[in-house]
Simulated assay, not measured.
Amino acid sequence: MKILILCTGNSCRSQMSHGFMQSFDKNLKVFSAGTKPAEKVNPMAVKVMAECGIDISQHKPKNVNIYVDEPWDYVITVCGGAMESCPTFAGKVKNRLHIGFDDPSEAVGSVEFIDSEFHRVCDEIKERFYDFYINEVKPQLK
């Protein structure tokens, strides 16, 4: 099964989602991309994922255009706030989903607050993508 997870910068939420989905089942083909990819994965995203036992330190933000000609079982957007516009994907897609999350990289305040926002969003991503895996993906793999 091929899953593409999209966000604008492909530096935080989509990378964390990618890491969790891949951790649930190593046989899934999981990719992530963005419409305006950042230069690198957000270091705080790498840190909180490492604390969960998942290494995304070698992930690199990619442009969604490299995946347009491929067929996908799922394309999932993860943008969250009303001020954000989620990318659209015009490729060959069986199922399109939106599972939105706040962008922790937009958090402002103390180091402790920013850290807590990354952990909160990471926990939400893990929970919602695990539910998606158990209820949608895993039954199709039997």
Score class of each variant (00 low, 15 high):
residue 16 M to D: 05
residue 47 K to A: 13
residue 16 M to I: 15
residue 43 P to F: 06
residue 48 V to N: 05
residue 26 K to R: 08
residue 46 V to A: 05
residue 18 H to V: 13
residue 47 K to M: 14
residue 5 I to T: 10
residue 47 K to S: 13
residue 5 I to R: 02
residue 19 G to V: 14
residue 31 F to Y: 04
residue 8 T to F: 04
residue 23 S to E: 05
residue 19 G to P: 06
residue 42 N to H: 06
residue 35 T to L: 01
residue 32 S to E: 00
residue 20 F to S: 09
residue 19 G to R: 15
residue 18 H to C: 10
residue 35 T to I: 12
residue 13 R to D: 06
residue 25 D to F: 10
residue 48 V to T: 09
residue 28 L to S: 07
residue 36 K to H: 14
residue 42 N to F: 01
residue 8 T to M: 06
residue 11 S to T: 12
residue 23 S to T: 00
residue 33 A to D: 03
residue 12 C to F: 11
residue 12 C to W: 09
residue 34 G to K: 07
residue 39 E to V: 08
residue 43 P to T: 05
residue 9 G to W: 14
residue 7 C to V: 13
residue 10 N to I: 11
residue 21 M to I: 08
residue 49 M to I: 10
residue 14 S to V: 09
residue 42 N to D: 03
residue 26 K to F: 08
residue 31 F to I: 04
residue 15 Q to G: 02
residue 25 D to P: 05
residue 9 G to R: 15
residue 41 V to Q: 04
residue 48 V to G: 00
residue 22 Q to W: 08
residue 41 V to H: 00
residue 44 M to F: 15
residue 18 H to W: 11
residue 8 T to V: 15
residue 16 M to H: 12
residue 12 C to H: 08
residue 45 A to G: 03
residue 20 F to D: 03
residue 38 A to S: 06
residue 45 A to K: 09
residue 37 P to R: 03
residue 28 L to V: 07
residue 33 A to Q: 06
residue 15 Q to L: 07
residue 45 A to P: 03
residue 9 G to A: 15
residue 11 S to C: 06
residue 28 L to K: 04
residue 37 P to L: 00
residue 16 M to P: 10
residue 17 S to N: 10
residue 9 G to I: 15
residue 24 F to M: 09
residue 16 M to Q: 14
residue 19 G to S: 12
residue 23 S to D: 05
residue 40 K to C: 00
residue 12 C to K: 12
residue 36 K to T: 12
residue 30 V to C: 03
residue 21 M to C: 00
residue 18 H to P: 07
residue 16 M to F: 13
residue 29 K to Q: 15
residue 26 K to P: 07
residue 14 S to N: 04
residue 6 L to T: 08
residue 29 K to Y: 10
residue 21 M to E: 03
residue 47 K to C: 11
residue 19 G to T: 15
residue 10 N to D: 00
residue 18 H to M: 12
residue 8 T to S: 05
residue 32 S to L: 01
residue 10 N to Q: 07
residue 48 V to K: 01
residue 8 T to A: 05
residue 17 S to L: 14
residue 31 F to D: 07
residue 47 K to I: 13
residue 21 M to W: 05
residue 5 I to F: 04
residue 38 A to N: 01
residue 41 V to S: 06
residue 20 F to H: 10
residue 32 S to I: 01
residue 36 K to E: 01
residue 33 A to G: 04
residue 39 E to C: 02
residue 29 K to T: 14
residue 13 R to N: 11
residue 32 S to Y: 02
residue 43 P to L: 06
residue 37 P to I: 01
residue 35 T to A: 06
residue 38 A to D: 03
residue 31 F to L: 06
residue 12 C to G: 09
residue 12 C to M: 10
residue 37 P to D: 02
residue 49 M to A: 04
residue 20 F to N: 11
residue 40 K to V: 01
residue 44 M to N: 15
residue 33 A to W: 01
residue 29 K to P: 09
residue 27 N to K: 10
residue 20 F to C: 12
residue 34 G to M: 02
residue 18 H to A: 11
residue 32 S to A: 00
residue 49 M to Q: 01
residue 21 M to V: 05
residue 26 K to S: 13
residue 48 V to I: 11
residue 34 G to E: 00
residue 32 S to T: 02
residue 5 I to V: 14
residue 16 M to A: 14
residue 45 A to W: 07
residue 15 Q to F: 07
residue 19 G to L: 13
residue 11 S to I: 11
residue 9 G to F: 15
residue 46 V to G: 02
residue 45 A to H: 10
residue 42 N to G: 05
